[in-house]
Amino acid sequence: MALDKIGIAKRIAQEIQTGWYINLGIGIPTLVANYLPEAVEVVLQSENGLLGIGPFPGKNEVDPDLINAGKQTITMLNGSSLFSSAESFGMIRGEHINLTILGAMEVSENGDIANWKIPGKMVKGMGGAMDLVASAKNIIVAMQHVSRSGDSKLLKECTLPITGLRCVKKIVTDLAVLEISPGEGFRLLERAPGISVEEIKHATAGKILVTGDVPEMTIN
């Protein structure tokens, strides 16, 4: 069965290691924080200017001066630090962030990502996405394997306006875990429970590399 959003978030949470500083995008990436194993200690960055994002506040703790990059009210954990947006993007550009997790509309087989604009529709802007993808050491994309209209989102080349070139390392979809093998294509690493290699191949428009038996994901 294909994974739901929580399943994708749970699978990505398995990638995360203690000691990492992580930037989570809006949507499924934000959910990842809820499924980190208890033993894993990480620090979440909010690019408007905070390290150490805590849970959403209780009704009596809401502070309008404390929001995340999605403009939601949040709390700070012990050990948090606050800084300007210039310093925040300095730590992003300077590759001090270990992992960026973000959503995408399309990913190409060489790791290009498109996630900020659909021509002909209202353009909202790229926010921090272009800075994050241009400088992250490790980028995991969380997305559905195919669009609502049934088109593959894993392509030979992106058709939508690009956010960044050759930057995605790994993709976790509702059907599969894949990594970008530079110059070769999408390497299939794991299948969602009950999903066949053939189904994944059928849903992938870009070149897909399959070696030997592809294991099923383990999701708790």
Binding site: F56, K59, V62, Q72, T73
Partner: peptide
């Protein structure tokens, strides 16, 4: 100090 996305844990 209007809040754009009022979000709480409860």
């Amino acid at each position: 100090k209007r809040i754009e996305q009022y979000t709480t844990s409860s």
